[in-house]
Design a binder for these strands. Structure first.
Length: 236
DNA sequence: CGTCTTTGACCCGCGC
DNA sequence: GCGCGGGTCAAAGACG
């Protein structure tokens, strides 16, 4: 397995460069990164996807804000020598997300950011936190801008990959132009508003697109015994 | 009985 | 202004 990521993400790990012009390249780390470790998820994912599958990191044009300490593949240097490879799709597209990712044949990881680059806390949200609990229906507080999003695509038989956190499903929706419903999950930890969406590619039902939104405010569950889709673990 | 999933309804943003 | 589509809520049911 390889991790591929474009320069936007690479730079985004260290700097905040909102208007950076980025060469149309992907960078492939020559070192196999296994297990995969996501920026928001310190615990390596237990991914049953094809070992030959390539994973690519990318970010949208304005999403170049600092990633959290990103030990892409713990033990491997994020600044390891990179191999430039062709970018498979259009260049530095805005709003790389599940929709865009879904057009790729290879598995890839995208880091989708909001407009603000000066940190997670400055994202222009219609703060849901301003809504009192039980003040439902006041959807004026619905988020206007999205949290930083990190999406990736894997080939897997299971929908929900174990990333070390405990999720609660709060919705499922059939989306247009997709044969498979999209599932919505929320981190069960209190005060943690991280969400994730899981859907399968209509063109390849084996491909699972997972989109994380937001950052966890707590460490992951340390229960390694949990299997994919297993919600028996405990977060603290 | 507590927790989680399902699912229909509701709300909002956006395009026309 | 209207309709469509995506995202969220919450009641009800399932499950352990």
């Amino acid at each position: 397995m390889h991790i591929c990521m474009d320069q936007g993400s690479q730079l985004g790990m260290a700097y905040c460069l909102p208007n950076l012009s980025v060469p149309d390249h992907y960078y492939t780390t020559p070192v196999p990164l296994s297990p995969l470790q996501l920026p928001f998820h310190p615990k390596p994912l237990q991914m049953p996807f094809d070992q030959e599958e390539a994973l690519m990191l990318s970010s949208d044009h304005c999403g170049l804000y600092p990633l959290p300490a990103l030990p892409l593949g713990s033990g491997h240097s994020a600044g390891a020598p990179a191999i430039v490879c062709e970018k498979p799709t259009v260049g530095f597209m805005p709003n790389i997300g599940a929709e865009e990712v879904g057009t790729s044949v290879t598995a890839r990881v995208g880091y989708e950011g909001a407009t603000a680059c000066n940190g997670y806390s400055s994202n222009t949200w219609w703060r849901g936190s301003t809504m009192l609990a039980g003040e439902k229906g006041k959807m004026k507080v619905r988020r206007k801008m999205r949290e930083p999003r990190f999406c990736f695509q894997t080939r897997s038989d299971v929908d929900v990959l174990d990333d070390g956190y405990k999720w609660r499903k709060y919705g499922q929706k059939v989306v247009k132009n997709s044969l498979h419903p999209r599932s919505y999950f929320r981190c069960t930890h209190s005060n943690c508003r991280v969400k994730k969406r899981v859907e399968r590619l209509s063109t390849d039902c084996r491909m699972v697109i997972t989109t994380y939104e937001g950052r966890h405010t707590h460490p992951p569950c340390d229960d390694n015994s949990s299997s994919s889709g297993d919600n028996t673990t405990t977060c603290f």
